[in-house]
Design a protein around this nucleic acid. Structure first.
Lengths: 150, 150
DNA sequence: CTCCCATAGTTGACGTGTCCATCATAGCGA
DNA sequence: TCGCTATGATGGACACGTCAACTATGGGAG
């Protein structure tokens, strides 16, 4: 059947839909619990996780570290700064740059969020799967990422 | 170690991160290709897929069918209406309700989008995985969904 | 030293998603 | 019929993401 050749089969499509819809639901549930229990969004958590390991970073380095576009990070840091979670100050060695750091309040919020977040991951991801399935999930992620890089 | 008991292990956490980050990247790549090649967003596609199977639907039924909140659908339909993809009109049997339908232009856009979208799914998902991995992905989705429903 | 381009970062516009408030109608029980 | 509650749908406020434009500084080629 020309024109439909090489399109996914019914089963493949069903697997695709189940996979993509469920991962989306999982993401939103984990994010929702994080937000409800700690007041932090997943984006906040990523930023703060990086800053907790390296307390002072250039904005671009931070963006690269967490895999975000600079613009996205700039918008997000603006919101986090308004909430008093991080601060930005001029960079001594490059007048274009800015250093980002956690405020004491930010560090406190991050530390309070760690255990609830890990617990949500355990409950909704780890505990939902067998050890074999967790391994398979990691392998699937690897295979998909390889394809996405090509 | 009280307080950290039952938190994910290092390996489990690595699997979680790989899984969630890769599925997010996959989603955005498929969505990006859909948008670039057809001008439709994934949200547009979901709405139009439902309407292509049942040409006239109540807004609430449509929302339930695709698993969206009514408010989200209302906002999205507003944007789609501005672009001439769908139309809304009063419902004859319930004065509160509205009927949603594809415009001719909407139907045309949807039909033009189907093959490119399926092709993207094949290239970035189906072709990235072995048949066993596709089966495992479906099973993982099922297991996660079962847990999410509880 | 000057010019040119690359880089750091911000901003505006806009699509998207959630939460919550609002409003009108439907539908039921007294 | 009257009034109460549930439901259908919309709207505003705000967070989040992307894209493209813009500002300003850095740094090398000549």
């Amino acid at each position: 059947m020309p024109g439909t050749r090489r399109l996914p089969t019914r089963d493949q499509l069903a697997a695709w839909r189940a996979f993509i819809e469920t991962t989306e639901l999982l993401r939103s549930r984990i994010g929702g619990r994080l937000h409800d229990e700690t007041g932090l969004s997943p984006g906040d958590y990523s930023v703060m996780l990086a800053l907790s390991e390296q307390p002072e970073m250039r904005s671009s380095d931070l963006a690269a570290h967490i895999g975000w576009e600079r613009s996205r990070l700039s918008h997000h840091l603006g919101r986090m700064e308004r909430r008093g979670l991080i601060s930005r100050e001029d960079c001594a060695t490059d007048n274009r740059g800015s250093q980002v750091r956690l405020t004491p309040r930010g560090r406190e919020a991050f530390e309070a969020a760690t255990v609830p977040h890990l617990r949500a991951i355990r409950e909704l991801f780890v505990d939902a799967l067998t050890p074999e399935q967790i391994g398979a999930a990691a392998e699937i992620a690897g295979a998909l990422r390889t394809r996405l890089k090509a």
